[in-house]
Amino acid sequence: MPASPTTRLRRLCMALPEAAEVETWEQPTFRVRGRIFAMLHLGEHGLAVWFKAPPGSQELLVEAAPDRFFRPPYLGPKGWVALRLAGAVDWAEAEALVRRSYSLIAPKRLAAQAVGPT
């Protein structure tokens, strides 16, 4: 039986250097040195992972695939993006997006360690 989206996301996030899982707002958040780089959220859009994206990426992702991506409340104005984890999820894409978020949040030394597949 395949792993649940929550389990897959947890494995992906926790494989990154110094990653920690902390429950916040009754949802799992994934942090590096206390700063959130990804969070799992179950809300009006269903189950989704929220992640930080470089400037301009939010608009590109949401416009290109609004069925998969959306602007999350609260963090959307800060450039964060959400990927729905329902149906057929491209886990290679999810991993790349979470790794990029991690690299934007983590100290440079740790971000450099996270380059490439785990």
Results as ranks from 00 to 15, higher is better:
M1A: 02
G76P: 00
V22N: 09
S101K: 12
V89Q: 06
A15G: 15
V62W: 03
L9Y: 05
V98M: 14
R99I: 07
Q27K: 14
A111C: 05
L83V: 05
I36S: 00
R8T: 09
P2A: 12
R10W: 09
L9A: 11
S57H: 14
T118H: 10
Y74M: 13
L61R: 07
P5K: 09
E44P: 00
R99F: 04
E21N: 09
P28Y: 05
H45N: 09
D90S: 03
V32M: 04
D90I: 00
I105S: 07
E63Q: 12
L40W: 01
A64W: 10
A64C: 04
T6F: 01
P77V: 07
I105L: 10
L47I: 09
R31L: 13
P107C: 15
R31W: 11
K78V: 00
G56N: 06
T24E: 12
R31F: 14
R8H: 01
L42T: 07
R10H: 14
V115Q: 12
R33F: 01
L110C: 08
M39V: 04
W91Q: 07
E93D: 15
I36C: 04
R8Q: 09
E93C: 13
P107G: 11
R71N: 02
R109Y: 03
V115N: 00
L9R: 05
A64Y: 01
A64D: 15
E59I: 10
D67F: 11
P5L: 07
R71H: 02
P72T: 09
G79I: 04
T29G: 11
P77Y: 07
A19S: 15
S57E: 15
L12Q: 08
V62A: 06
L60K: 14
Y102W: 01
A96H: 12
G79S: 05
T6D: 12
A112G: 03
L42D: 15
A92V: 14
P55F: 01
L47E: 12
K108C: 03
L16Q: 04
L42A: 13
G116F: 05
G116I: 05
E63R: 06
L9H: 01
A92L: 11
A88G: 05
A106H: 04
E95T: 07
K52H: 12
M39L: 15
L9E: 13
A3W: 03
P17D: 13
T6P: 02
P73G: 08
L110G: 02
T29N: 07
A94E: 00
L60I: 12
V22T: 15
W91Y: 06
K108I: 00
A38T: 00
G79K: 04
P2Q: 10
E95H: 05
E95P: 01
V89G: 06
Q58S: 02
L61D: 06
A64S: 15
L104W: 10
I36A: 07
A53E: 10
A82F: 00
M39K: 09
V32L: 06
P17T: 06
V98D: 07
P55V: 10
A3N: 14
R8L: 11
L47H: 10
E26T: 13
P66V: 05
A48F: 01
E26H: 12
P66F: 09
S101C: 08
P54F: 04
A111F: 00
A94I: 00
A48Y: 02
G34L: 11
Q27E: 15
K108A: 15
R11V: 14
F37D: 02
L97W: 13
A48G: 12
L75D: 08
E18F: 10
V32E: 02
L104V: 07
R8V: 07
